[in-house]
Simulated scan of single mutants.
Amino acid sequence: MTTFSSYQAITAEYIRLLNPGEVSRASPTPRPDIADDAPKILLFSPHPDDECIVGGFPLRLLRELHWNAIDVAVTQGSRKDRQQERWQELERACEYLGFGLRATQENGLEKINPETRKTDARLWGSAVEIIVGILSEYRPQAIFFPHDRDWNRTHIGTHYLVRDALDRMDADFSCWTVETEYWGAMSDPNLAIASSSEEVADLMAALSFHIGEIQRNPYHLRLPPWMADNVRRGGELVGGQGEAAPDFAFATLYRMRQWADGQFKARWNGGRTVACGGDLQQLFSSK
Rank of each mutant, 00 (worst) to 15 (best):
Y160T: 01
Q241F: 15
R216D: 07
R168P: 02
R163D: 12
L221C: 05
I211P: 00
A228N: 12
Y219D: 01
V231K: 03
D188S: 13
G242N: 10
E179T: 13
N152P: 00
D164L: 08
M227G: 00
S187Y: 04
W176N: 02
T177P: 01
A192M: 15
E199H: 05
G212R: 06
I193H: 09
C175G: 08
D188M: 08
S174F: 03
S174D: 11
R163T: 05
A206K: 07
G240M: 08
V178E: 03
M227H: 08
Y160P: 03
M169F: 02
W151F: 12
E181K: 03
I214K: 02
G242T: 07
G235M: 06
V231Y: 03
H155V: 05
V178A: 06
R233E: 06
P218K: 03
G157E: 07
L203C: 02
W151V: 14
I193Q: 08
R153W: 01
L237V: 10
H155I: 06
L191R: 10
I193S: 08
M169L: 15
I214F: 04
P189W: 08
I214Y: 02
E243D: 11
G212W: 01
P218W: 08
T180F: 03
L221P: 04
A171T: 13
A192L: 15
P225V: 11
V231P: 05
I156E: 13
G235K: 02
E198P: 00
Q215I: 09
H159G: 03
D172C: 01
D172V: 02
A194D: 05
Q241V: 14
A194W: 04
M227A: 11
A245V: 09
W226G: 00
R163V: 00
M186C: 06
A201T: 09
R222K: 13
W176L: 09
R232D: 13
Q215T: 12
L223G: 04
P218H: 08
A205L: 12
D188K: 13
E243T: 15
M204T: 11
Y219R: 03
D188G: 02
C175H: 05
M204S: 12
T154N: 07
S197H: 09
R233W: 11
E181I: 00
L166G: 02
G234H: 04
W183I: 01
G184F: 06
L207M: 14
R168Y: 10
R168G: 06
A201P: 02
R168H: 14
S187G: 13
F209E: 14
